[in-house]
């Protein structure tokens, strides 16, 4: 068990570097955000985690074409992921559009 985990970490060490550095980038990048931008920033970040759709597409590409259940689940996952991405970016844009007129 412990061996498995250590070798998993070792095999993924570059991903772990990216992970840790990204944590710091995420913290720094939004450093001093004014309170008026809290909601649009939240909405923009919401759209960005829609990148999970890439995983849903990968699942579908790796599923044998005769596995109907898996394809159906994958289809639902891709629809949900797209809603997250498109809805997220569109809502953010609408919020910021209004922001500009003020």
């Amino acid at each position: 068990m412990i061996n498995d985990i250590v070798s998993f970490l070792g095999q993924n060490i570059e991903m772990i570097y990216i992970l840790i550095l990204s944590v710091f980038v995420g913290v720094e990048v939004i450093g001093k955000v004014p309170a008026v931008l809290h909601t649009p920033l939240m909405s923009g970040a919401n759209a960005i985690h829609g990148v999970v759709i890439v995983g849903a597409i990968i699942v579908m590409l790796n599923t044998p074409v005769d596995n109907i259940l898996a394809l159906a689940l994958g289809f639902v996952a891709v629809v949900l992921g797209t809603l997250n991405v498109i809805g997220g970016f569109a809502v953010t844009d609408r919020m910021l559009e209004m922001f500009k007129k003020k």
């Binding site: 993924n12 991903m15 990204s22 995420g26 939004i30 809290h38 920033l41 939240m42 890439v54 990968i58």
Partner: peptide, 22 residues
């Protein structure tokens, strides 16, 4: 992490950490 997919990892973690600070 599972798919060794950098764009999912960076996108996800950025939102995870920036979201927490926010």
């Amino acid at each position: 992490f599972l798919y060794q997919n950098q764009v999912m990892l960076t996108g996800g973690i950025l939102v995870g950490s920036a979201g927490t600070i926010l």
